[in-house]
Amino acid sequence: MTSSVSVASDSSSVNDKIPRLQLRNISKSFGGVHALQHVDFEVYDGEVVALVGDNGAGKSTLIKTISGAYVPDEGETLLDGQPVSISSPQDSTRLGIETVYQDLALCDNLDVVANLWLGREAYRDLVPGVLRVLDETEMERQTIDVLKVLDVKIPSVRSAVASLSGGQRQCIAVAKTILRQPKVVLLDEPTAALGVAQTRQVLNLILRLKERGLAVVVISHNLHDVFEVADRVIVMRLGRRDSTFDTRSSSREQVVAAITGATSGAAA
C-alpha cells in the first residue's frame, strides 16, 4: 500500500518554509489495533489543513496525539523545527496548541465573558492576599475586542451561553482558545450539527484565524466545507496518511476516491 504520496506538490511557496507543527513517523496502537501507522503530518502558519477520512481512519487519534490526549508509541513531534515532547493536554497548551472539541466545552449557566475567561480570569487584589475580585470591566472590554476581531456576532456578551445558537456557541468555543494566543488551533468537526447560516459563521471564523497567521487543522466529514476553507486536504485511510490534495488544483471527486480507497492516492 502506498502512502504519503503528495498529489499536489505545486504549493511550493508553502513547502519551502519550516512547518509550524510537524509530526514524523507517528505510530499508535490500542492493543492489537493499529490506529496510526507511520504517519507524517505538517501544518504551516497561515494555512488551513483539513484532515478527512472515513470513520476509523485515524483522524481523531492523530488530533488527540497532537493535543496530548494520547502519547504516540513512536515518532517525533517538532514545533518550529524543534523537537518537543507532548505527553499531556497541559503540555500542548503550554506549547501554544489549542484544541476545540466536538462536544462543546462551555458552561451553559455562565455568560459569554465568563466562559471566555474561565480558568484564567482577570482579577484585582482588593485586599492584597485576602480578597481578590474579578475584574469584570477588563474582561468584558477584551471580550468585545476579540469578538469584533473575529467578527462573531452575538446579542450581548452578557447573555448566558445557553441562550445562544449552535453556531454562536461554536464561535465562542473557538474565541475562547484564541484568547490564549495559540500558534496552532485544532478543530474537531466544527460544523457538525450546524445549520447553513451557522456553518457559514464558523467557516468565516476559520478563515479569520488563517488571516491572523495561525496554523489551523480541521477535522471534517463535510467536503463542501473543507473545500471552502482548507488550503490542503490530507486524506487518512486505515491508520495511514493516504494522500494530500491542494484544494486549488484538485476536485472533490478525487478526494472522495481517496477516502473510499478507490484510487489510493497515487493513481490520481
Binding site: 455568560d111 456576532k153 446579542p155 450581548s156 452578557r158 448566558a160 445557553a162
Partner: peptide, 28 residues
Amino acid sequence: SQDNSGSQGQDEQGNALVHQPTAAAPRA
C-alpha cells in the same frame, strides 16, 4: 436590555451586570 433567556445564573452580578449591546445586537 434583556438577554434572550436563561441568565438566571447571572442575575446577582449587581452592578457588573450591565448589558453591552454589540454593534448588531438585535433588541430583545
